[in-house]
Computed example of a mutant assay.
Amino acid sequence: MTNTLHISIAAQSDNLGDVEIRRQLIEQFLQRGYHLVVFTGNMPQTYIDAFRLPSGAKVVSNPLAFQASVLRNALLGRASLAYAPGPHVLTDSPKALAKAAAVLGLCAFVRLRGGSLSVIGRSLRGTGRLSIGLERALSAMATSYAMRDTASAPVLGRSADVMPDMAFMRNASVDNSVAGQRDIVALSFRSDRAVNLDGLVSLIEASQARGLKPVFITQVRRDDEVHAELSKILGIDAVLWENRTHSEQEEVIEHYYSRSHAVVSNRLHSLLFGVAHQAFPVALHEENHNKIPTTLKPWVDFDSLVLDDPDFAFLSRTESDRKVLSDSAKAAGTVLGKYISSKVPDHS
């Protein structure tokens, strides 16, 4: 009997990283023969289009209709559920607790009817005692439960599988067999955190001295404003999102990442999009923010750049270093693929 995967893709609609990790997880189920019911909520059409869903997928924007589909297919013994990958903050606000409890009840019904429950690529933060209890119940109920970072299990207060971020699967779909000119240092910064301007000037000058062209790259639309401002102040190019669709912007930034020697960013998926093109990941070091190191460190080496006291050794990395990066990234994708194969029933 063909099984039906139910998954929500409602997320930050201006973030290509959110698209990528959900798209990669969905693809794993499609490869294993699942039908698809996708909850979109109020996501814009260009966001939905970026998922390139198969023609047979059922797209549902109403939450009650989505829940009804889960219950109906569960009664027939053919429902599976997957939590969308990405960060989840455990808070004890009444709204958060009510939502978590309701979804947990839906999960329990699916499991009682023999369906699978996949929680892969989750990242936990927060200290809500009741929310942590509900999350522990979810982990016990799930047929697969894997965090994407090493910081989540301590939040949960118990051991959990740690697997590469879903974006590592992107490496398999990118063709790097024909190496082009690598003349760019891609810069992609969060709009909600200040960047040391003097250190950034030093980075730009050091890059240019090595014949590399620094370029701001917008992968999250809300970062356009800060990139445009910094571009004007520093006199370098910026690849802004502006009025492009999600798919158009993804195609544009892919071109720039394929030409990048390195990607310097405090956004995890800017680094991982670059890694897919064998661009060296350079994470801005930020106190009290451990998302990037706890996600990347188990799988690929990366540079940590402190703009207050910068070290630009990454600008001198060689093609042999790039081969090591590529092999490590591919190995991470293989590890994740094997884990999914061991946990997700095949209905193809």
Rank of each mutant, 00 (worst) to 15 (best):
M169P: 00
D175K: 07
R221I: 10
S191F: 10
H255V: 08
F273G: 04
V300T: 13
L268P: 10
N196D: 15
N176F: 02
S304N: 00
L197C: 05
F280N: 02
E251D: 14
L203M: 15
V239Q: 12
A194E: 08
R170M: 07
G199S: 04
A172L: 05
S304P: 02
V174D: 00
S188L: 12
I184K: 11
P293T: 10
G235P: 01
E229Y: 05
E251C: 07
R267G: 03
R182N: 11
S247R: 13
V226K: 15
F273N: 09
R210A: 11
H246G: 07
D192H: 07
S231C: 12
S270F: 02
R244D: 10
A279D: 02
P214V: 11
V306K: 14
V282M: 05
R182E: 12
Y256G: 01
H269L: 10
P214N: 12
E205F: 06
Q181V: 14
K297W: 04
M169W: 10
H285C: 03
G235T: 02
A209E: 03
S177R: 15
A206D: 01
R222G: 00
D192R: 10
Q219L: 14
G211R: 05
N171C: 14
R259Q: 15
T245E: 03
A262D: 08
K297I: 04
G180Q: 05
N290V: 15
S173D: 14
D183C: 01
Q249E: 11
S270G: 00
L296E: 02
S173Q: 14
D198P: 01
